[in-house]
Design a protein around this nucleic acid. Sequence first.
DNA 1: TGATCCATGTAAGCCGTTACATGATTGG
DNA 2: CCAATCATGTAACGGCTTACATGGATCA
Lengths: 200, 200
Amino acid sequence: MSADSLSPVALLCLAILHGGESTGYEIKKASVEGDYSYFIDASYGAIYPALVRLAADGRVTVREDVRPGRPARKIYAITAAGRNALVSALCEPPGPDVFRSRFLLLAKFAASMPAQVLRDALRARRAELEAELALLERIEAETAHDPAAQWITGYGRACVAASLDYLNHHADNLVALTIPSAGQVRTNIAVRQTLADAAE
Amino acid sequence: MSADSLSPVALLCLAILHGGESTGYEIKKASVEGDYSYFIDASYGAIYPALVRLAADGRVTVREDVRPGRPARKIYAITAAGRNALVSALCEPPGPDVFRSRFLLLAKFAASMPAQVLRDALRARRAELEAELALLERIEAETAHDPAAQWITGYGRACVAASLDYLNHHADNLVALTIPSAGQVRTNIAVRQTLADAAE
DNA sequence: TGATCCATGTAAGCCGTTACATGATTGG
DNA sequence: CCAATCATGTAACGGCTTACATGGATCA
């Protein structure tokens, strides 16, 4: 019943429910591998209590769905009050976007790291970005009717493509900075020479 | 004395101290507005206890610096054990990079929002990105000697520039989706018509 | 004179993750 | 037959933020 402001997880729930009925389980999936993964990765331990709270506050309704042979589930739907709460929460100025990268910290210390560690990290990062790109393309195809969704996938695509591009063009450059292992001294010298030549 | 793995904040401290002596106060500044802001924004409540812990574990040393007329301070320096801990922590595979955006959530609901809210958010986002770009350029200039630092600022620049570019070219497009207020109906129709024309 | 910078620290409390508990069904 | 998917929840533990406490120096 109270009208205090929403926690990030509650905001996520209302946002998803705005698009149609859902369950706690499905909300989690959307937040981790779906079209809300740019907002938060919520866990069950955060979602279920948040839904209970939202129901108590009249922002969502619950309906039990018992089907023989399948686990029972609770289907949540947003109410008019819930829509209001969502819109007014979104009206408040959004804080700054956040980008956090353990990978870049590693890159910063390339000169103290074994080459293989950097290579592995670069490969992992590239795989990650390619997976993200695939996800964005999937979402883009699924939401052809929704121009706002298209706008945000376009934004995501632009960022991911730029990262991937930088990685593809500068990866070797970073590996060349790592501590040389015996067998690689000559290679690194060659790379450095190439770079020096290019700089002229 | 124990050798358990480092918390993110402890890792930040060691990373900064690797580049030279520092104080808790300066570490915070570097993490918030300096060249480690891509890693974490740590608060004093996290940093000071972490430094105490690192000192107890022999990973850093402390030296008191009392100067008349200025607040006393504690200058921390990394030890060999600290360097080891840093490198081995960095050797572990970095988790995925994280991007979190309240702004994109707002964009997704453009169709339910007043135009002004979107305009304000777009402006704020652009300002943020431009500030980030300026910061990156400053860091790039300050670290001309350090190729790894140059590599990561290059990465940052690529991402930020791509975001900014998308925003500059598609902002109007997003505002056109918002709920029309009386005075704007004609404008929006005109914009939509333009878009439709462009699509042909 | 009042804010901002320098500088260190403590304590309460929140928010969320992790791990556990349960259990039927489907697919490899 | 084992793993994964579907499905909901609880409890403990942890890390971090927020707010508070202190105080001189500098700047507008």
